[in-house]
Design a protein around this nucleic acid. Structure first.
Ligand code: ZN
Ligand code: ZN
Ligand code: ZN
Ligand code: ZN
Lengths: 126, 126
DNA sequence: CTTACATTTGCAACTAAGTTGCATTAATAA
DNA sequence: TTATTAATGCAACTTAGTTGCAAATGTAAG
């Protein structure tokens, strides 16, 4: 079930996702927005925005869920599949606008895949 | 710091990893081996075996850590990089013996990457 | 503008994975 | 056999995420 009412909390949360390439963890969002809304509200809105195809999520190397803005998804069509990058220096994670081709899986049915890359981002590369 | 003494707990745990292709979650291992050893012991031994290059790990779609036997790693050289597959029907996860080529990252330094695939395994494909 | 009502929110309590400190047990080598 | 030190069990803790319910608020009809 997605978003039905445009509440203040929804607006505040969406504001954090202006940058299409940057992914934000639930922990980060709770720290940033904890004074404006309850953490339960944050979790619930994120879930709804994901249902609506406005955000997508992945689990980082630390096991914490991250969210980022979708580019071309809708409630019925979640087509936003791309790799994610996590910088070990600054901690930033981001969507990568590149194509990954999954090798052929002869005896398995592939429904979804995610590539997670760990390294140093452009700013931290020395 | 890896394994120093070959204790009974280490033996029992290693026995679970006979099958090179199958990955086991910490939760599964605690359920299976909880009567033989404490969960703290399980976590600690797994960590050490990973340090030693005997096991490797990844975080599943559910956020739970999974471990599997390495084929050709050592304490100093962790070369076992391959995709992992998680079956949505039977819940089994396994190592895939296939090569993935990460696209060139012009402005980023890639240190590690993991491809996680969700789908139906050979036995569950109908 | 007011009312009605369903959606959303806050709160507190809970679940579950994983960690830590410390006293006790046990593997190893002298 | 004993001394040493790693490994273990236990309980208490941390942290991410969830749930139930009462109170608050957005929305549309009247
Ligand atoms: Zn960085
Ligand atoms: Zn993304
Ligand atoms: Zn299966
Ligand atoms: Zn593997």
């Amino acid at each position: 079930m997605g978003i039905i009412r445009k509440t203040e909390s929804v607006e505040i949360l969406l504001n954090e996702f202006q940058d299409t390439e940057t992914a934000l963890s639930t922990v980060e969002l709770i720290t940033r927005l904890g004074k404006f809304m309850n953490k339960t509200t944050i979790y619930r809105i994120l879930e709804k925005l994901e249902d609506d195809g406005i955000l997508h999520s992945f689990i980082g190397f630390d096991g914490v869920k991250r969210f980022a803005r979708c580019k071309s998804c809708s409630k019925s069509n979640h087509s936003d599949v791309h790799p994610h990058f996590q910088c070990i220096s600054c901690g930033k994670s981001e969507c990568l606008d590149i194509e990954v081709n999954i090798p052929d899986m002869s005896n398995r049915e592939v429904l979804f895949s995610q590539l997670l890359i760990k390294g140093k981002c452009d700013l931290c590369m020395v």
